[in-house]
């Protein structure tokens, strides 16, 4: 399915009857940019460190420097190339966020699917659990846990998986509950189909758009949360190539090399926004499957 470019339908009508335009899809260019940026971020995260093994090599003699031919975005106070650092930093920032989104999606399914489909005590317990988690300030808990335990990057990722999962659980459960009372599911039950078959083959494909959209949204929030922790010096080790960490480490360089601060900041914002755009687009495409012949 192609995404038409924004053309006002009323423009084509002779006599120019002005009408409110039909709600249109994202213009193709925005989605294309989103796909390219997300792809670049993923690429950098997967292969960046392989191609730039010396990115974190210090050059204390050089120290902080403005952009130059050798260093397009200048260097930080330890003489490290900002562009290379950002490219390599994608690994911990992007892969971590990906792990969090995927992990919480999995956990959300494991709890939300049975809770929504079976109801009863399973549902009661699951709902109490998510209610409790929702009354907690998530980022705050993450700060306390990683700060007090001091357990490093993996602990930060795991903590965020647990803290993100109630959101996924609720989304999955609500979507399942909504589908469960639809006649096509009731018909499947009357057809003697096994619960597992109904849940996986009938209900799941129809909640997929919502769930996928939510997972992409989660990725953005996870990226923000993880770099927030890094920014506070929690989780990732000091001096590592990580976008949040770079923001914290290079804070004092605002005057000497602004790019050392701006680049990692923009990297976080652009990646999260791009993934959100792609998620929105995917959500709609999946949603339209039922309308396609």
């Amino acid at each position: 399915m192609s995404t038409p470019l924004p053309t006002d339908p009323s423009a084509a009508v002779p006599g120019g009857r002005r009408r409110r335009a039909r709600p249109r899809r994202w213009p193709g260019t925005v989605v294309a940019v989103g796909l390219v940026v997300s792809g670049l971020a993923l690429l950098a995260a997967l292969v960046g460190p392989l191609f730039l093994p010396d990115a974190t090599q210090q050059d204390v003699l050089l120290g902080v420097s403005q952009p130059s031919a050798a260093h397009p975005l200048g260097t930080d106070d330890l003489g490290r190339d900002v562009l290379q650092m950002v490219a390599v930093g994608a690994r911990s920032s992007v892969l971590g966020a990906l792990l969090i989104a995927a992990g919480s999606l999995l956990l959300g399914h494991l709890i939300g699917l049975p809770a929504g489909y079976r109801g009863g005590w399973v549902d009661q317990v699951a709902m109490r659990w998510t209610d409790l988690m929702f009354s907690l300030p998530a980022l705050l808990v993450a700060i306390v846990v990683t700060g007090v335990v001091g357990g490093g990057y993996l602990l930060a990722v795991l903590t965020l998986v647990v803290l993100f999962s109630p959101g996924d659980t609720r989304v999955v459960r609500a979507a399942v509950l909504e589908q469960r009372q639809r006649p096509y599911v009731e018909a499947a039950r009357l057809s003697n189909l096994r619960d597992r078959t109904i849940a996986l083959r009938y209900v799941w494909p129809n909640i997929a758009p919502v769930v996928t959209g939510n997972a992409f949204l989660n990725f953005g929030f996870a990226l923000v949360a993880l770099s927030s922790l890094s920014f506070l010096g929690l989780g990732i080790a000091p001096g590592s190539a990580d976008w949040g960490r770079m923001l914290a480490d290079n804070r004092s360089l605002l005057l000497s090399n602004t790019w050392a601060v701006v680049t990692p900041g923009l990297a976080i914002i652009l990646t999260a926004a791009a993934v959100n755009v792609v998620g929105d687009w995917l959500h709609r495409r999946l949603d339209e499957r039922g309308l396609r012949r």
Binding site: A21, P23, W26, V224, S228, F231, G265, I268, A273, N276
Partner: peptide, 23 residues
């Protein structure tokens, strides 16, 4: 909705939503 102004606002809001406050 559907016009350029709407698209612009939506793109900006997605960017805002994705921006960590400390950055």
């Amino acid at each position: 909705r559907g016009r350029a102004a709407d698209q612009g606002i939506v793109v900006l809001s997605v960017a805002g939503l994705s921006a960590p406050p400390f950055a």
